[in-house]
Design a protein around this nucleic acid. Structure first.
Lengths: 166, 166
DNA sequence: ACCCTGGGTTCGCTTGACGAACCGCGCGGT
DNA sequence: ACCGCGCGGTTCGTCAAGCGAACCCAGGGT
């Protein structure tokens, strides 16, 4: 396993890699921040623009892109005494990115926050307890990190499963 | 909660937001893919370059940046019959981003993989069971999504905690 | 008739990514 | 002593992306 041979990379098809594929959808600048705001309930263009401070052109591009990819839907609404407008709402597809955004937040809280409490605390709505994100296996064990995980490329008889040395 | 008032955004200090802070470190193009390779055990410049296909100049920039931020360390090594070289190894700080990368992968597996099995399967090293990432609260409940989470800005008496309507 | 607000688009400029070429070190071979 | 090679870069010219400021249009309010 910790062999000295130059075979540290599992030779799977990187073009099919789900991390790359996901980043192709949400990896551009501002996109994940737009989703963060969406998770906080922000839906309107102007609110997003104020919250993020992103250039308007970029914001429209990201929103259109997210709609095209099916993470948001553009829904008409009419506030009392106003004309019809549109707002952007999360779809299931978009909502399912919540763990990714929380993971980034959690890392920032742990390593970047200036040893105070984190800017935003997440609690379970039903019981009030703080929530956190973790890897666990189907047998119920907590998984501590990449070293406890074996990555096996599919479509091959698992000749050289990759377990990183660290 | 689902009030018609235009107050969908919790008025916390976005400049301190951990998602933004984290993305400032790992949000540039290629950075998270470099980390994916690191989690798979790839450590050498040439292997990274081959695996990713990124422009060399960009790759050196990202690696230097990750070292400067303390997610990787540049460690000298000497393969038998070769001169001394350097490789890039994860630090604790870097390893702790594993959940974020797994979250992205999991989303891609669910929503982007062409209804086959995912390109890369992760299993628990000790027991062989598949691993997955999930939010849970300190009381042990599984948290299903953003709607079951309450976000409270700190530094304020929680006047308007944000629980997104949808 | 005038102004305001929301959701854009357009424009010129700067920053960043890209690919191909080039470079320097130190090993092993001849 | 010299050659060639592989690793880990750097340099360069081109092209795409992000930026801020300005402009625009629809509809409502006054």
């Amino acid at each position: 396993m910790t062999a000295a041979t130059p075979d540290p990379a599992p030779d799977f098809d990187r073009a099919r890699c789900s991390v790359a594929a996901t980043l192709a959808v949400v990896g551009e600048k501002w996109t994940l921040l737009v989703l963060r705001e969406a998770f906080l309930g922000v839906r309107r263009f102007a609110d997003l623009q104020r919250a993020l401070g992103a250039p308007r052109a970029v914001l429209t591009d990201r929103l259109h892109r997210l709609v095209a990819e099916g993470l948001l839907v553009r829904v008409p609404y009419r506030a009392p005494g106003e004309r019809e407008r549109h707002e952007y709402r999360l779809t299931d597809r978009g909502r399912d990115l919540h763990p990714a955004v929380v993971a980034l937040m959690q890392w920032g809280d742990r390593w970047l926050a200036g040893d105070g409490d984190p800017p935003l605390a997440l609690t379970h709505r039903d019981c009030g307890a703080p929530v956190s994100l973790g890897l666990r296996c189907a047998a119920g064990h907590d998984v501590g990190g990449p070293r406890e995980v074996t990555a096996t490329p599919t479509g091959r008889p698992a000749e050289t499963p990759a377990t990183p040395p660290g």
